[in-house]
Structures are given as structure tokens and as C-alpha cells.
Amino acid sequence: MTESRPFNRAATILLTIFVIIAVLPILLIVIASFTSEDALIRNGYSYFPQSWSLDAYYYMVKQGITIVRSYAVSFFVTIVGTALSVLLTTMLAYPMSRKSFKYRNVLAFFVFFTMLYNGGIVPSYIMWTKIFHIKNTIWALIIPNYLVTAFNVILVKNYYANSIPDSLVEAAQIDGATEFTIFRKIMLPLAVPTVATISLFTGLCYWNDWTNGLYYIDNEKLYSIQQLLMKIMNNIQALRTNSNAALLGTGAVDLPGTSIRMAMAVIGILPIMLIYPFVQKYLVKGVVVGAVKG
């Protein structure tokens, strides 16, 4: 694209404003996680807290190995899930984009319809646990729900249909390439921007997901980081509210409150903040390499 200096400057300024708006509230969370519980309740959240504290993080460190293990689970699930998902998604989207393909509209409707209605958790749960026996396996975190989503398929299909000229495919066909070769050698490499997009979406989705874990995982060894955080948070909440309803006996419990929730939010996004710049580059390359290896 051609350069234009004043335009660039304006774009930078505008984007900087957007970024500040996006980041300031997150900074508030990070600071709140280092604020002492007292100060939080007395003065509310503040960018300049009166007293700092590491209590929330001590509490998390006490969970020790559990957190490390959950990070590992989350990374594995995110990487494998995203790779599989990208492969399946692009494979499904490519035929839909071909104007000569007779069933493209049927297929498009078939895919789109999954966005409109889902049968709810009960039938899915029965199917995945009774027929596929994925309960309490790592696959329970990967396979249900996210491998192929209509949204991603349509994004890729749309990209193919609009950005890649038919003539390219026709030329390849004349050269005697099979459909699969065309897909592998031409279409996948050409889809890099959109593959990067859906990788990012799918990756975020796997990283942030805790519902699969909630339904299909009982074993804490297979808890993803989000599920673990969710569990800690919910248990604290349940303890605090139920102690009033006298569900509990006279066991003294000393739990950190608000600051720990903030610390957990930070722990949940920290790895992404750290590795995002690398992933941004690597994802694109990795996907292409993986696809070529087939």
C-alpha cells in the first residue's frame, strides 16, 4: 500500500487512543490483584492503591503444581485443538467456495444451520459420554463444540470465494492437478491471512473455554487453567455465601476475596500476553508448514 505521512500519523494517534481505552481497565485489574484486600474494600479499586499486597498470589502459589499442570493442559489443548480445527475448517470451506461445486449451497446451508440451533447440553453430553467415551480424557477438552464452527467455516469460504480467482484453479486443473493437490498446494498457502484469523479465534476459544471441562472432566489432573480458576473462584463464592445459610459447620476458613479474583484473571491472561507476539508470527508459519506436510 502506498504511504501517506499525515494519514499514518493520524492513524497512529487514533489507534493509540483505542489501545489506551482497551488497556486501562485491564491495568486496573492487574493493580487490584496486587492491592491489599483491606484497601480494596475500604477505598475501592484504584490505580494508586494505599497498600500493596502479594497475598492473592501467595494463595495461588499455594496451589503450586496444580497450576503448572493446568497450564500444561491448556497449552496442549489449545495447540492441538487449533491445529485440528484449522485443518478441518479449511477442508470443509474450500469445496463450498468452488463455484463449480454442485452441492455448495446445500453445504453452506448445512453448515450455517448449526449456528442457529443447538440441541443443548443434555443430548450432547449423552452422546459424547455414552457413544464416544471421551469423559475424563484430554479429548473431552478438544473435540466437543469447537473443532468446526460455522462462523469460521463461513469466514474461510468467504475469503476463498472473494479473494482467490477461479482462473487460478482452472489453470491448475489444466495442468492436471487433482482437487486435493489444488487444495494443499494452492488454496491453503493462499489462505494465510484468514487461516491466521481463525487460528487466533480458535486458539482464544480453546484457551478461554471452561465449559467442556465442567461437563466432561472430573479429574483435577485434567483441569485446564480456566477450569481451575473457575473452580477456585466458585468454591470461594459458595463458601462465603453458604456460611450464612449455615450449610457449614464451625470450620474457620480464611480466604482472600476480591484481590484473588483479580489475580486469577491476570493468571488466566498472562501467558497469552507474554506469548501472543510470538504466536502471531509462528501461527501463520506453523499452520502452513503443517498443512504442506499433510
Partner: peptide, 22 residues
């Protein structure tokens, strides 16, 4: 082309269409 799409189609049938019986 259908074969290329097949894994995705199968997945959607299993993951989305069967539970629609719900």
C-alpha cells in the same frame, strides 16, 4: 471435493446435528 469436505461434514453431523434430537 466432497471427500475433502467429508471430515468436517462428519464432525458437524456428530457434534451439532445428532444433539439436535434434543
Amino acid at each position: 471435493l466432497l471427500l475433502i469436505a467429508l471430515p468436517g461434514i462428519l464432525y458437524l453431523i456428530i457434534n451439532n446435528y445428532i444433539p439436535m434430537l434434543g
